[in-house]
Simulated scan of single mutants.
Amino acid sequence: MLIPALDLIDGKVVRLYQGDFAQKTEFDLTPLGQAQLYAEAGAKWLHLVDLGGAKDPDRRQQALLAKLASESG
């Protein structure tokens, strides 16, 4: 089974190079839109990574994560 993932910083979809926050690529995607596309493609699970919250617990994206869980399908 393939489980798609979204890595998130400040409400944006990102990818870190070898886990380095200084070397990140931001994608021109909305997290909800991409999550919905994964669901439409048949994904039953979605791996969400709150990188901002992992680095700084005061910056957890709880509202965004709750929205993704409730609205992504």
Rank of each mutant, 00 (worst) to 15 (best):
D20W: 03
R60E: 14
H47R: 08
A5D: 04
K24L: 05
G33W: 09
L32V: 04
A69I: 05
L68V: 07
D58P: 03
G52I: 11
A43N: 02
K55C: 08
G42Q: 00
L64S: 08
G19Y: 06
D20L: 07
D10Y: 05
K12G: 13
A39N: 02
A63Y: 06
A39M: 02
K24R: 13
V14N: 09
D56W: 10
S70N: 12
L2M: 08
A63I: 03
L32K: 03
F21H: 13
P57E: 11
I3C: 12
A35Q: 01
A5P: 05
R60D: 06
G11F: 10
L2I: 14
D50V: 09
G73W: 00
S72F: 00
L51P: 01
L32H: 06
Q23S: 14
G11C: 07
P4D: 07
R59D: 10
D20P: 00
K67I: 03
R15A: 14
L16F: 03
L65D: 04
P4M: 00
G52W: 07
V13K: 09
G33T: 04
L46V: 03
G73H: 01
S70A: 15
P31S: 13
Q61P: 05
A39C: 02
I9T: 09
V49D: 13
R15W: 05
T25E: 07
S72M: 01
Q36K: 04
A66I: 06
S70V: 05
F21M: 13
D58S: 15
Q62P: 05
S72L: 00
Q61F: 13
D20E: 10
D50P: 13
A41N: 15
M1R: 08
D10C: 10
E71F: 07
L65E: 02
A54K: 11
W45V: 01
G53R: 02
L16H: 10
D7C: 09
A43Y: 02
K44L: 00
R60K: 15
K12A: 15
A41R: 15
D20N: 15
F21L: 15
A66L: 10
L51Q: 11
A39W: 00
D28Q: 12
E40Q: 15
S72I: 01
A69E: 01
L37Q: 15
R59M: 11
L8T: 01
R15Y: 11
D56N: 14
L46Y: 08
A35E: 02
K24C: 07
K55A: 14
D56R: 10
F21W: 14
L6N: 04
L16C: 09
L51K: 10
A69S: 13
S70I: 00
L68D: 04
T30N: 12
Q34V: 05
D50K: 10
F21Q: 10
